[in-house]
Design a binder for these strands. Sequence first.
DNA 1: CAGTGAGCGAGCTTCCGCTTGACTT
Length: 817
Amino acid sequence: MSNLVVVESPAKANTIAKFLGKDFTVVSSYGHIRDLSPKAFGIDVANGFNPDYVVPEDKKNLVKDLKNATKKASSVWLATDEDREGEAIAWHLCAVLGLDPQKTKRIVFHEITKNAILEAVKKPRYIDQNLVNAQQARRILDRIVGYELSPILWKKVKPALSAGRVQSVALRLLVEREREIIAFTSTSSFRITGQYKSAHKNSAEFTAELNERITDKDEARNFLNLCSTATFTVGDIKTKPAKRFPAPPFTTSTLQQEASRKLGFSVAQTMSVAQKLYEAGKISYMRTDSVNLSATVLNASKEIITSLYGAKYSHTRQYTTKSKGAQEAHEAIRPTYMDQSSVNGTNAEKRLYELIWKRTVASQMKEAEIEKTTATVTVSGSPRQLIASGEVILFDGFLKVYAESTDDDSDENQKNMLPQLTAGESLAMLQMFAVERFTHYPPRYTEASLVRKLEELGIGRPSTYAPTISTVLNRGYAVKEDRPGTDRNFIQLTLVNQKVTEEIKSETTGNEKSKLFPTDIGMIVTDFLMNNFDDIIDYNFTASVEKTFDEIAEGQMEWTKMLSTFYKPFHKKVEDSLKNSERSRGRRELGIDPATGRPVTVLIGRFGPMVQLGDNTKDEKLQFASLLKHQYLETITLEEALELFKLPRKLGQFEGHEVTTGIGRFGPFINHKGKYYSIRKTEGEPFTITFDQAIAIIIERRELEKNKLIAEFAEKPGLKVLNGRYGPYISYEKENYKIPRAVAPESLTLDECLRIIESSGKNNHNRQSKSSSRPVNKKITRSKSKSAKKASGSKQVKSASVKKKPASVRAKKKTKK
DNA sequence: CAGTGAGCGAGCTTCCGCTTGACTT
């Protein structure tokens, strides 16, 4: 007589098994076990939206194991999460395992502790069909939106694109921000600061800033001139106490943001490192939107804070989750053992764990007490005032452990201490500056700041933030990259020794690191959706459907009724736009080429954005050129477009062959006798580089090439010993082989080389056959991990579901270095 | 490694949310 308990995650199954003892077997469902069939539409709309649920290929073995376990058990307990998705998983389990939803015990844990679990087992309930129906409505609505919109894009924009309730809004955010940046015009004004000193003995100097910006340079200069002879007096001094409170413990999205800012992790990287920590039992579950901490953690925190910093640093706080639909079933992300301030593991694991530990501890600490002081400095002969402000930390509190960082950590906002000042005292002015400052365009999104925005809008869930970003990138809707800034001059006026001098200085601006840039395709898709389905990618769409899902969950609305209310007008729009909307290719007429009188057009071509010279309705030979990497279809000018036709450029004859320059997939190059030489940034650009410069580059590269060859053998012309970036190696039949450290590469004989190749175990023919059979073999023979074994008896074998990638993808992966 | 590009059309592509794996230079 045994009890079978099903939870969602194998790691959770492990811990629960310990609490429940021998009479219970705890297994995991690994999330959902059924879904709408992926190939077809999967919904019979005419038949009450009847869904066609199937067990995915890679879950079939798991389901088989679960069925076996069910047969052996005298009683089954469904202990999936207490939310819409968890309830639906339980319901699908019933359907698949042949259990009666109204008779099978359903339990939920609010906390993974022995007590909470034993309590839960004492009062089981049954499946809540309303909650299940809310999930079905959610699932089916997403399928309808995704599978009806995507094919329109295939027809009207480009094949293999996609649209969805979440990803299309994420993309819209990027596109709209980019357009704000494009439309932004920077203005400048003068920020005036002065350094002063009080007459007190040993008084420190301090900085004060004018309480307004002056736009006109002459006016700024006049003010400094006035200051050169003015007297400066301390006006008001105001001190007021302030408090700073710790941030709540981590949720998925705040963890992603802080790991991005403090550790430079990508959103996906954060999740995979957190998963490792979770599986090792170091932290609680990492996909959560709750800031809740269990009573056990609160107590443990109090103890650890008291022992490390003293009782006055401890302050127990219970945070409540603001966003609706948040599940108190999960806790915030926090250490499993509060007394462990660090862990063993990879560098990334250590750093992420420390961040989590500090954030959790800080959240249970006393607020910091601060004294803020502002003093005005009056200027004789002028109504203008300067303001000096300073901050003193009276009690550091949680700041001892952790300070949250912000997206714009500019040093201009740093607050220092002010020296002791008294109202009415006169000050010595040491120097003053008027520095031209420019307004900055709104910040581009990073992965993490996009996640924050989505969460704010209530769009997406902790388990989907990282995959959503990946989708937007994988569809080619956006790219994540660094872009160097440009140099900009600014004016600085300096007043020292009663003299005002002016100089022009230079700074770099607009440098972007790991930012998301929408592509032309991303913009075209967003425009298309805005024109035809603005209600779906409305920022409030998710929020409003969530409201009706809640009504379904509470039994106040029928789920099929909700769906048909949505479907009718939506589907009509789908049909309309299929019939009536234009093909969207971002086509734009730039004007007429003055040289030839032919029209210049930009549009998306088969291989991306391009410029076309000539009219394709007339019978003339068209000319094409690709846009450069950072040019947008919607902003490129006629002049810039015409420039693109100048490549490839002929520079002249060298050694009897033409030297040309161009820009290819891998950047700018020089071509001579069929050989390509990359032009580095510092060496010039293909549009302007001179013949002599190009020859110099060719000769330099040949010299490098010469040094590259260490040895070759007449008997085997294809085999070479070469000097590469990573040291000497053997090149043979398009493969490279490492030479062992102990061997001197110059003295290698042909036989020795062949032996190295032999012993490396890679040989062209072997490799190819291996690459096609490898995935299947590997997966079957792979040993099961300890936790998974215990959780589900035997883990699902994915071999049957391994999709063969198209040859092109495989080849690309192989040759990629 | 550095090409191509219009238009036509066969046959392919696609959603969100739960989970954890799986390649290798």
